[in-house]
Design a protein around this nucleic acid. Structure first.
Lengths: 345, 345
DNA sequence: CAAAGTTTGGCAATCGGTTGTCATTGCCGG
DNA sequence: CCGGCAATGACAACCGATTGCCAAACTTTG
């Protein structure tokens, strides 16, 4: 029978091939595969067998086109090479894969324009997006969130679901730590002015400083890269502080390198606290005291929140905000202030 | 006129909306936008104006479905959190974006199965793929390459275009460096057995050792993670060598940490050479001597080679192999062998 | 000025599915 | 034994573009 022969062509099988093989309509195959209950069990089994035999793989493009759902989620990060995002990306990747979604990772190059145009592009090719450290304005974010399901990371805009890392509270831990070591003049090495995280940290830090009666000055802004650490270190030394809390570990590590070059000892002459506990923070020299949090888990949570938006049917109230705890991890880059006397001496 | 009013609906505009607005057929709009020469210049301008006015954004799904081209390229890496891939990913991302392609990044979790199934999935949603450090067999890779345009990174399979990083030749530089420091007993800390890079390095290294009449032993395999460094360090110490060449910087950095814990000084008691010059290699303690190469550029080259396959029309003969140079960067983790006498003494 | 050649742009099929509509079938109780 | 209801599966429209084919309009040439 010429009509019964298995797909003679090389081209990947479609539901039509399966339909022909089983003697049913293509739509029946579609239903058997996506709405099993709406089809006779025997027919379904036949279809499934045929699909397996043909090594059928559904065409995601076609599926997306007709159903409107793409099965993909965009993940936007400002800088892929920033180690902070490694764990985040891995977290989202794992959780998305577990849910059968594909991750579309995009580096927005710390640019609000790239970010905006990417979102526009993704609007039709993703079911939702996760935006880390957005550079967009609150209004722009809100508008974008209205057009497609979205979860932000480290960006708190009312009305947009977010996963926040509680670094503000960690900054007071860091400050207390430094105070307990006798430091009274501390600097905050700020990140990009467009970074809300940096602003939030500074706010928390200056409030804490006021409560505790110590002086904290803000220096910068500095780009979140190790190269900026040199300028940051010089600024810190010039300002006369004995300890610094950096916007993130990249700046902190860069400072470590610069201070070493200049012969300024850490922590004897200057204490440094980073933020994020990125890859490298534990083996730099000296190992960096830093504010750590479960970043990979943050990525998973972000995905869960997004998927909850996408499939409201499933149980579980949709939380619109999730805060990840942060704690200070003390390593070798912080020590007693120069000339400080121990209280219990 | 009810018919002339701009798209009343909220839904994103399609070519049909543009066609209606201009009073032409949808196909004309399609041509005006993708084959400008085949349409009257005035019509084209009208269409372009309408498209701009409507903020038209072509639906990539639909485009992919009907044209067969998706405008996306898959990039498969075994482990996103390995810093080695940061620069690679950034290189591919930049070059792909410049060419108007989208990058689909997937972490294959060092698993050949995940890798294979990902390729299968990507077959319909990407125009080609770049596979870094594949865990697949030569046959499987060759078969996959026959089904879709592919470029491998650090994997040399005849018939499959590849970008290779010339670490083998760098290993002899490393060995010469160690020999010049008086080392005669050297260990190679191997990577995963499924990694062809590791095998190629070992082959080159043992040949070079034979030529130079020094002893090199192979230890391992070790997983390419800092955690494996502890076992590697212990094995190295136990074997009695005075210098190690590690499969990559992660292992080397892990060794550095372990040796420090055990009170073994680097480089006084043991010299360590890494490979890749990843983020962190310059600020670990001591800074790591390592074999460096232009990874980001390698990513760009891989993309160029793939795009050349996709658009054979454009000039430029299709190279099927590209080798990136590698050089030894000496930092603080290598020094004179214990008890060695300087030759010029 | 007509014949021949070249643009130009519309029609309709197609990509591979999803989904609404509806006819058919079979089972049930009355 | 028949009407009514649920289950089943075929048909066809549709998602938003691309593209082969062809007719109309225009240009060139003899």
């Amino acid at each position: 029978m010429a009509t019964t022969q298995p797909a003679a062509v090389d081209r990947p099988p479609t539901i039509h091939d399966i339909a022909a093989l089983c003697g049913v309509a293509a739509s029946t195959v579609s239903r058997a595969l996506s709405t099993p209950d709406r089809v006779n069990i025997r027919t379904r089994l036949r279809i499934e067998a045929a699909a397996a035999q043909l090594h059928y793989i559904p065409n995601s493009q076609a599926k997306a086109l007709s159903s409107g759902r793409t099965g993909a989620v965009g993940v936007l990060v400002p800088d892929i090479t920033n180690p902070f995002y490694f764990d985040l990306i891995r977290g989202t990747q794992l959780q998305l894969k577990a849910a059968g979604y594909t991750q579309l990772l995009v580096d927005t190059e710390e640019s609000d324009e790239v970010e905006a145009s990417t979102m526009e592009q993704l609007r039709k090719s993703a079911d939702g997006i996760i935006v880390a450290a957005s550079r967009l304005s609150d209004e722009a974010l809100l508008a974008a969130a209205a057009k497609m399901p979205m979860v932000t990371m480290n960006r708190d805009v009312p009305g947009v679901p977010a996963v926040l890392i509680d670094t503000p509270s960690a900054t007071s831990q860091a400050l207390d730590h430094l105070i307990s070591l006798g430091h009274t003049r501390v600097a905050y090495m700020a990140g990009p002015t467009t970074s809300q995280s940096s602003e939030r940290r500074w706010t928390a830090l200056s409030e804490a400083a006021e409560e505790r009666g110590v002086e904290v000055r803000r220096l910068g802004p500095f780009a979140p890269k190790t190269q900026s650490g040199a300028a940051a270190a010089d600024a810190a030394v010039h300002s006369g502080v004995t300890a610094c809390i950096a916007f993130n570990d990249l700046i902190a590590i860069g400072m470590l390198q610069r201070l070493r070059e200049r012969g300024i000892r850490v922590p004897e002459d200057m204490s440094i606290v980073g933020c994020d506990d990125i890859f490298g923070a534990d083996f730099c020299n000296p190992p960096l005291s830093t504010m750590a949090s479960p970043i990979e888990q943050a990525g998973r949570v972000a995905v869960s929140m997004l998927l909850a938006q996408l499939n409201p049917l499933a149980g579980g109230g949709t939380r619109s905000r999730s805060v990840m705890p942060t704690h200070l991890t003390v390593r070798g880059s912080t020590g007693p202030a120069p000339g400080a006397t121990h209280a219990w001496k």
